[in-house]
Every structure is written in structure tokens, then in C-alpha cells.
């Protein structure tokens, strides 16, 4: 039997490089102005999965993501780096999902991929920073979770030993399999794309993407069926609509405020020697320093 590893990943707006046009005049986020990227910690998760595959030849790595059609970009990106397949869960019914509704949909897709041995994701995504989807998916699957993982120390068909990076130290734990692991940014970064794989998978598309292509891919796909990235809808996941999207999300956003800074009387100083010396004198005489 193959050793099946499922990597959960998310395409996120790059909130770390927010430019001036990132906010619209009405104070809402201008998503179009932010580049969409592979969530950084999910890349660390992918690397953990790929390094297992390096050691165990019968391991396979499957990338699973939820999002709009465009999110297939990160599935291809994962394939260029060594993932074997990918699945995109996509449906309008998922719109407005909070972490609970998201973990429900993800858990159904993971179950559809059973039997699996390991589920790996990044600790958190940079657009929300909640770190909730991993543990919530593990709970829905009824499997143990190991969060804040830094390194997989050993692994066999039944158990895994993982080093965790915590605030005040390091913890090494042993878990039965299957289990879900969330990977911390202190883990090794992901390997780069591999030229051969880029050539192999550059025409990989989802059904929706194929419909939007002007070129006819029929012949190519008959020859190379592995290029098709499967899309799963809520129906294909046999999801209960009550648990999806807004109705499946107990948290509601009451209000969003653009960041407003309270004005405080700030003294503007030049960078002249006189100003800097005066400031240091003030700090010393008021016993703030010295």
C-alpha cells in the first residue's frame, strides 16, 4: 500500500507587501492589488511531505486546497516541486466560510482520499493568522494533531515522532497514525521548482480552466491523463449545506474598520545634532534611560 500524505494549503493575498493601493477609498481591502501567493507556512508543510517522499519511495504527496478556480495555481506550483497530484475544492456554497466551515469541507475531502496516513499543513495562513483550521480539521477527522512541528524525526507505517517548537522550549512527541501535523516557520524552507517537473506539469489544468482555454487540450489529455486537476464541489463531497459557507460559520463579522490612528501630540525633531542631543538629555533627566 502506498503511504499517502495529504498537504493542506491555501492561496492567500500577500498581506506582507501591502502597498498604497491595497485599500480602497471606502476602507475595504482591494484584493486585486495584492498578489496571490502560496501561503508561506504551507510551503514549509509541503517540504516536510516531499522530504518523506525522498526517503520512502512508496510515499505519495497530494495537495488539497479550497478556493476559487485561480487557486489551482498553487496545485501546479506544488507539482513543479514534487507533489504527485492535487485536488481543488471549489463551490460558491463555500463563500463566507469561517475556520469551522472551512475545516468541515476540508475534512470531507480528506475522507474522500482515504486511506491516508498523514495530513500536513502550515501552522497558519498570513491573511488570518488564526492557526485554527489545522486542529479543527483534525477534530473533524477524529485523528490526533501535532501543532507547531519543526521536524519529523522518524516515521513508519504506524507511528511518527515529531519535534515541536514552543515558546519556551522544545518537545518531542510520538503519535499514532493517521495524524495531522501543522508546520511552524522554523522548519526548513521548501525546495525550488524542478525543471523536469515544470515541463511535465505546465499544462496541468482543472476542468474549469480547460473550458476557458482557447487551445484544444483533448488529445494531450487523452495521452497524459495525469494532467487533469480534479475539482470537487460541495455535492461531490456529499456536504451538508447547513455546515457550509455563511450558515456553517458561527463567527460573523460585525464590523470592519480601516486602520485609523489616534492622533497624539507628536514632537517632530530634525536629525540635527542639536535636536538629538536635546532629546537624549530629556530622556536622561526624566530617568527614562540612564
Amino acid at each position: 500500500m502506498r503511504f499517502r500524505i495529504i498537504v493542506l494549503a491555501k492561496q492567500v493575498p500577500d498581506t506582507r507587501n501591502v502597498g498604497k493601493d491595497a485599500m480602497k477609498a471606502d476602507g475595504t481591502v482591494n484584493r486585486a492589488a495584492l498578489p496571490a501567493i502560496f501561503n508561506p507556512e504551507d510551503l514549509h508543510a509541503l517540504e516536510q511531505a516531499l522530504s518523506i517522499k525522498d526517503k520512502i519511495p512508496y510515499a505519495e504527496v497530494i495537495l488539497l486546497t479550497m478556493g476559487p478556480t485561480r487557486a489551482a495555481e498553487i496545485i501546479r506550483e506544488a507539482m513543479y516541486r514534487g507533489a504527485d497530484h492535487g485536488y481543488l475544492i471549489t463551490d460558491r456554497k463555500f463563500a463566507g466560510s469561517d475556520t469551522l466551515a472551512t475545516s468541515y469541507a476540508l475534512s470531507l475531502a480528506v475522507k474522500k482520499l482515504a486511506p491516508y496516513h498523514l495530513v500536513i499543513s502550515g501552522r497558519q495562513a498570513i491573511d488570518g493568522d488564526t492557526a485554527q483550521v489545522g486542529p479543527q480539521t483534525a477534530e473533524k477527522l477524529g485523528i490526533p494533531q501535532i501543532t507547531y512541528a519543526e521536524e519529523i524525526l522518524s516515521l513508519d507505517a504506524k507511528k511518527i515522532i515529531v519535534k515541536r517548537r514552543l515558546e519556551r522550549g522544545v518537545e518531542v512527541v510520538n503519535s499514532t497514525l493517521p495524524a495531522l501535523i501543522t508546520v511552524h516557520s522554523s522548519a526548513p524552507p521548501c525546495r525550488q521548482r524542478i525543471g523536469k517537473l515544470l515541463m511535465k506539469y505546465k499544462h496541468a489544468r482543472t476542468v474549469t480552466e480547460l473550458q476557458n482555454e482557447t487551445k484544444d487540450y483533448t488529445e494531450l489529455y487523452n495521452e497524459r491523463p495525469y494532467l487533469l486537476i480534479e475539482e470537487w464541489s460541495a455535492e461531490e463531497l456529499k456536504a451538508d449545506n447547513e455546515w457550509l459557507g455563511l450558515s456553517g460559520s458561527p463567527t460573523k463579522v460585525k464590523k470592519i474598520e480601516n486602520v485609523v490612528f489616534q492622533h497624539k501630540e507628536s514632537k517632530i525633531l530634525s536629525n540635527s545634532d542639536k535636536d538629538i542631543e536635546k532629546l537624549m538629555q530629556t530622556l536622561i533627566s526624566s530617568h527614562i534611560i540612564g
Binding site: Q132, Q136, E139, T147, T251
Partner: peptide, 23 residues
């Protein structure tokens, strides 16, 4: 919102199907 709280709270919220807001 520590490595314990952020590990535990989401698992509890999922089991109880209730809302959780981080940080």
C-alpha cells in the same frame, strides 16, 4: 493565545461547533 491555547481552543470549538476568534 499560547502554543497551548492555540492548540486546544480550536479543537474544542470544532467539537462543540461554536465560534472562536484568535488573538
Amino acid at each position: 493565545a499560547t502554543s497551548i491555547g492555540r492548540d486546544l481552543a480550536p479543537r474544542v470549538a470544532s467539537a462543540l461547533r461554536c465560534g472562536l476568534t484568535a488573538d
